[in-house]
Design a protein around this nucleic acid. Structure first.
Lengths: 340, 340
DNA sequence: CTGAAAGCGCTAACAG
DNA sequence: CTGTTAGCGCTTTCAG
């Protein structure tokens, strides 16, 4: 393997010092334009590539953001990540990504790796069963900013970007009630997580406001996967007293659930009205189209990254704003709209 | 900000050398078990975190894989990435990800960053308009392995993981012909890319075999987005001579196209039979379910990462196997299945 | 505008 | 089993 060219090699060739080469390469203003040109040309010619490690080591800064997400392969997550990557990359930051696979234990390991790789900042959406903040405290201790998005810790004054899950769930449930639903079921994820507990609370609140009773059998806790939707449909069909409205905490699960119900002869929305959450592409393709909440995944990713980078460059501190609530809205579609 | 603890600090506290600390921390076998314990305990106690840069600099190795994809937010890509991340992470590798946004120019910049960050290996799926190999040649020059997946360069002896796009397209088209379609249209992406050109060729081959003529107006080149599907439907409805079968190169585009056609009164599959590609969740949720090709995204990601890591650890060379073709298969569903 | 020199924190020969 | 030593390649005062 060919020897790596260093700034010293370039310096020697040009009979200047390594310091000059280093400065020229960074376009330092105190370097003669002509010298710069010579250095850059020579570097190219010799096949030089800068060594980020040496630079990072020396500068004590990595220009890298760490991102930990529950899983990569969800429409919401990958959309948010795509936006973050774009912002970060435009600002000269790299992104290292890892997935907790919904496991708190894995998340702790991920955080450790990010810590040792000295990310300049960390952006996180929590795993299903994370219940300790400890593994993120280390970052705070070293002055490394941590921002949470979507799945965040309840309360506290931790920087986070969310939507108003409570209100959205309230709106959806209220809408179902207005469509004449009297037994509205809620299918959701792990209630430990803010996003699901808040939606559950919003749902209950709306039921109460509509004067509808809530009973245990109206709640189904699942992993919200495609398969969970089908399973949920089976359970619903086995219920002695069936629901006439179903509010599912994500679209993909809502779609499969609805699909199985339809295959078994139930009419949507008349026998059962269905609503999801996220505005995933499937909600627009399922027939009937699924009523949902427009979740600004792209904006959320964009904002998390922008916010982080502004903090890192000193343009604005993360500590002055603790919680950002993005606008999200109810999209009423055919799956819940009953003819009057 | 608190001072960073280094192995020297630990060494001093314990009255041993830094080398011993370094070794103990790596669980080097030539270190007394007792010493190890003391070092590890002390490190924890002092809040030590290893500095990967210093280590990388010294070892000339980063334990990082670079991945460049066209975009993160596609079901195929995020599924493949999720699988890669898992394999890499289990093997102690980090992953840094960047997206070319379908632009060859951006891809070149991404490659440069990966190069300077000294990734140990690079995994790539090409942008729409990449047509030069140059930016990857640098890697080969330094002995850094590069593996392509899905969107690869045509021919050559470059390590790549693909499916048999030609045959799959052939199968799909043949199936449509067997269902009685006589004017089969093909909606695809940029024909510069292997995946689309091969599908196009397979499609034409099957037409020829079925004795069906092909004319220019049966091909529609788009960006295969959700919106492109709707636009395509409009174009189809404006065609003087409409197709009776449509083979779309991805499911999401097929789904929206089909949806708009249905809204305008066309019956699927009887007026027009529809087929997609990828086995995206939407293909299973659209009504009727969409005939498609089961694309092993997960396996592909898994294989790319495994293959890369085996090469890096010396377990198997990338140079002995050039091209891996994964099994993929036609899934016939209601969108193309006509009653006899 | 340029150079000399020191050191970021870690690892790996080599020598005991 | 442990210590000594010499860098990895770069940046950045400080001094011209």
């Amino acid at each position: 393997m060919a020897k790596e060219i260093t700034i010293y090699d370039i310096a020697k060739e040009l009979s200047v010092s390594a310091a000059t080469v280093s400065r020229a390469l960074q376009d330092h203003r105190a370097i003669n334009a002509n010298t710069k040109r010579r250095v850059i040309t020579k570097a190219e010619e010799m096949g030089y590539r800068s060594n980020q490690f040496a630079s990072n080591l020396r500068r004590r800064k990595t220009n890298t953001l760490g991102v930990i997400v529950p899983r990569l392969n969800s429409h919401f997550v990958s959309t948010a990540l795509a936006a973050m990557e774009k912002i970060a990359s435009d600002a000269g930051y790299n992104i290292i990504i890892s997935q907790s696979m919904e496991s708190g234990a894995k998340e702790i390991m991920n955080a450790k790796t990010m810590f040792e790789n000295r990310v300049d900042g960390l952006i996180v959406s929590l795993a299903y069963d994370t219940d300790s903040f400890e593994h993120f405290e280390k970052f705070a201790g070293k002055g490394i900013p941590v921002i949470f998005f979507d799945r965040v810790f309840d309360g506290g004054d931790i920087a986070s970007i969310v939507i108003d899950n409570f209100r959205n769930a309230c709106d959806i449930t209220k809408h179902l009630a207005e469509q004449g639903c009297r037994r509205i079921m809620h299918i959701t994820g792990n209630l430990k997580r803010n996003v699901y507990s808040e939606r559950f609370n919003g749902y209950k609140q709306a039921l109460a406001e509509a004067g509808l009773p809530w009973t245990n059998d109206l709640l189904l806790e699942t992993d919200l996967s495609e398969k969970a939707g089908a399973d949920a449909a089976e359970k619903i069909m086995a219920m002695p007293q069936k629901p006439d409205g179903i509010f599912v905490a994500n679209d993909i699960c809502a779609a499969t659930c609805m699909h199985v119900l339809q295959q078994n002869g139930f009419l949507i929305p008349n026998d059962m009205a269905v609503a999801g959450f996220n505005n995933d592409p499937v909600s627009r393709i399922a027939e009937p189209n699924i009523t949902t909440i427009n979740y600004p995944a792209h904006q959320m990713g964009e904002l998390a990254a922008t916010y982080m980078i502004n903090h890192l460059t000193g343009a604005a501190s993360i500590h002055t704003t603790n919680k950002i609530i993005l606008k999200s809205e109810l999209l009423i579609r055919a799956s819940s709209l009953r003819k009057k």
